[in-house]
C-alpha cells in the first residue's frame, strides 16, 4: 500500500524507510521531536520531502499535490484541528465525500442535530473539534487513513469511543496512527519507533509494550 523509501526532510527526517501493507494498522511512536508528525505531513504532501520517495500503491506520489494525494486515497487527521469560520460541520463532512454526515458524527459520539450546522470556530471546544476532525477522516473512507495523536485533547469517555472506532475500522482499512497511548498501541499489527529522524525499531505491539515496561 505505502512505501516510504529513504525519505529526508530538512534535517528532521534522515532517510526514513518502511512499508505499510494493505489492511494493516501501524502505530508510529517515539519521543517528542523525533519527526512523527513531520513524517505524516510528508505522506499527505503538506511537507515537501528533500529526498527519497513515497510510493502509494505503485505510484510515486512524492511530487503530487495535497489535493492529488487526497484524490488518490490518502487522508490525514490533524493533531491540532483547524478552525474555519464560515464552514459548518456539515460542509466539512460533505466535502470529505459523504452524503450521510450524521453517521460519522455518531461514530465519534456526537449528536448530529446539535453539531451539523455549527461552524468550525470558537463555538466548539477543542475536544469537540478533535472528534469532528476524526469524523472527517472516517467520512473520507480513504484507502489510507493517517491519524496524528488522535487521543490528544479528548476526554476519557471520548477516548473509549475512539478506541472502539479504530477496532471497528481496522478490519478493512489501512491505518497509520501516531500515538503514545498504550490502548492504541495494543491495536497495532506493527509498531514503528521513530527516533532522531529515523526508524530505530520495528516490532509487534506486545514486544514494544514489554520492552517499555
Amino acid at each position: 500500500m505505502l512505501k516510504i523509501d529513504k525519505v529526508s526532510y530538512k534535517g528532521i527526517l534522515k532517510g526514513v524507510g518502511f512499508d505499510v501493507f494493505d489492511n494493516e494498522l501501524v502505530v508510529i511512536t517515539g519521543p517528542n521531536g523525533s519527526g512523527k508528525s513531520t513524517l505524516a505531513k510528508c505522506i499527505m504532501g503538506i511537507n515537501k520531502i528533500s529526498s527519497g520517495k513515497i510510493l502509494f500503491g505503485k505510484k510515486d506520489i512524492s511530487k503530487e499535490s495535497i489535493t492529488e494525494r487526497a484524490k488518490l486515497g490518502v487522508s490525514f487527521a490533524f493533531q491540532q484541528p483547524v478552525k474555519i469560520k464560515g464552514v459548518t460541520v456539515r460542509d466539512l463532512l460533505i466535502s470529505a465525500g459523504t452524503n450521510k454526515p450524521e453517521k460519522y458524527l455518531k461514530m465519534v459520539g456526537l449528536v448530529p442535530e446539535e453539531y451539523l450546522e455549527r461552524e468550525l470556530s470558537n463555538t466548539l471546544s477543542g475536544g469537540e473539534l478533535k472528534r469532528i476532525e476524526i469524523a472527517s477522516i472516517l467520512a473520507r473512507d480513504a484507502k489510507l487513513m493517517i491519524f496524528d495523536e488522535p487521543e490528544a485533547g479528548i476526554d476519557l469517555w471520548s477516548f473509549n469511543d475512539l478506541v472502539d472506532v479504530f477496532k471497528k475500522i481496522k478490519k478493512d482499512h489501512t491505518i497509520i496512527i501516531i500515538s503514545h497511548q498504550e490502548r492504541i498501541i495494543k491495536l497495532a499489527d506493527r509498531v514503528l519507533v521513530l527516533e532522531n529522524g529515523q526508524v530505530s525499531r520495528e516490532c509487534t505491539a506486545d514486544e514494544f509494550l514489554e520492552e517499555v515496561k
Binding site: 499527505m44 503538506i46 499535490s65 495535497i66 489535493t67 487526497a70 484524490k71 487522508s75 490525514f76 490533524f78 483547524v82 478552525k83 474555519i84 469560520k85 464560515g86 464552514v87 459548518t88 460542509d91 466539512l92 466535502s95 470529505a96 465525500g97 461552524e119 472527517s136 473520507r140
Partner: peptide, 24 residues
C-alpha cells in the same frame, strides 16, 4: 492551514476558498 485542511479532503485551492467564502 484552513486551505490545507480542505485540500486534504480532496478540494482544490480554488474550491477550498470558495467553500470558505460562501460559508462565511
Amino acid at each position: 492551514e484552513q486551505i490545507i485542511k480542505l485540500e486534504t479532503l480532496g478540494l482544490t485551492k480554488a474550491e477550498a476558498e470558495s467553500l470558505i467564502i460562501n460559508g462565511f
